[in-house]
Design a protein around this nucleic acid. Structure first.
Length: 308
RNA sequence: GGUCUGAUGGGCGAGUGGCUUAACCAACGGUCUGCAAAACCGUCUACAGCGGUUCGAAUCCGCUUCAGACCU
């Protein structure tokens, strides 16, 4: 990014990414305090109310230290996705940058970060009726049937999708059906222009240290009352918001499918796997500079090179 | 000292001469454009050691080492 393009921008969005349990939230608060910046969350689960422990939402202390957005500000019944997030977050940033040179974004949802920084193509939300019928067909006719239809409606995309992945096949079909046009034709893959500069910071640490932190954090969640939180959500377990590590495993325990101890072990394992997937996602972005999350001076120095 | 049993990849655990990548778990790598903490894909070829029998041995025989059980 050149100095001339930078000078036309309104401010700097500091995007903190990294695997779960790597200290993103705490780092974000530190940066927010130093830069007098608000924080917006790029986490697909922390947006919901009623699940503060299992999703490791910022603590009351952290929330008091900086203004947070997209934290526990909607119900689990509400539809939310990366597309909605992009629209709402951009509108919010427009206001925030009117008052602050810096805004910090933190969260572990790679797709949300992508939506915020690169933008999503203009594709429709899922039509509930279409999605439901596709789910039925998947259950009744199998994935092959859906793949066959995709070949007819969008041969190009059928060639490149992972045809073993029902979620991808269904989404493509869903877009074809709701727009009457091939999915691949509408998927531009272009990177949106943003009115602010973006600095991406990744939190990095040795794998064994990370895993140890994750394991201990799960134990802490249990100590803080994860079970009761999950039990309160049990009646809503079919909602997408509850398809979340830390809850699904306890739902299985409530259903008598495993012991409590086994459920907790699974929460740990699935958190580790989630962390690994996050790393795979975030490592791919060459714009991310990786730091030890405790090395605030180095991180601030890096940010300073992107003055608004 | 003697007898017996066992020794399989990080773990568990099949497989008793000739497709076995056993399976599973963990771990690791990867994919990713509206359910993304989701949904997927891939990798990890071991048989305690040595020698022998055989066209061919994880599988049969002998010795060695180790572990366990039992006997004196």
């Amino acid at each position: 990014m050149t100095a001339t393009t930078m000078s036309s921008k309104r401010g700097v969005l500091i995007v903190v990414v990294g695997p779960t349990g790597s200290g993103k939230s705490a780092l974000a608060v530190e940066l927010a305090k130093h830069l007098r910046a608000p924080i917006i969350s790029t986490d697909s689960r922390q947006v919901f109310r009623g699940m503060p422990i299992g999703t490791a939402q910022p603590t009351a202390e952290e929330l008091a230290a900086a203004k947070h957005y997209f934290i526990a500000d909607r119900e689990v019944e509400d539809d939310f996705n990366c597309g909605k997030f992009e629209v709402e977050a951009l509108a919010l940033l427009d206001k925030l940058f009117a008052e602050s040179d810096y805004v910090v974004a933190v969260g572990g949802s790679g797709l949300y970060v992508q939506a915020l920084c690169e933008g999503m193509d203009d594709l429709p939300d899922a039509d509930p009726a279409i999605r439901e019928s596709l789910k039925q067909r998947l259950a009744n006719e199998g994935l092959e049937s859906l793949v066959a239809e995709l070949r007819v409606r969008d041969a190009k995309y059928a060639e490149e999708v992972d045809i073993c992945n029902p979620a991808r096949v269904m989404r493509a079909l869903e877009v074809c059906l709701s727009t009457g046009r091939p999915y691949s034709e509408q998927r531009k893959g272009t990177t949106a222009e943003r009115s602010f500069n973006i600095v991406k910071i990744g939190t990095e640490m040795p794998r064994d240290v990370l895993y140890d932190r994750i394991n201990r954090r799960v134990d802490m969640m249990v100590a803080e009352g994860l079970e009761a939180e999950a039990r309160a959500m049990y009646p809503k377990r079919h909602l997408n918001a509850l398809q979340t590590v830390g809850y699904r495993e306890l739902f299985d325990y409530f259903d008598g499918e495993c012991t409590f101890e086994e459920a907790v072990e699974l929460v740990k394992r699935n958190s580790r796997r989630y962390a690994k997937r996050q790393l795979t996602w975030f490592r791919r972005d060459p714009h991310t500079a990786w730091f030890n999350p405790n090395d605030i001076p180095a991180i601030l120095a890096h940010i300073a090179s992107f003055k608004p």
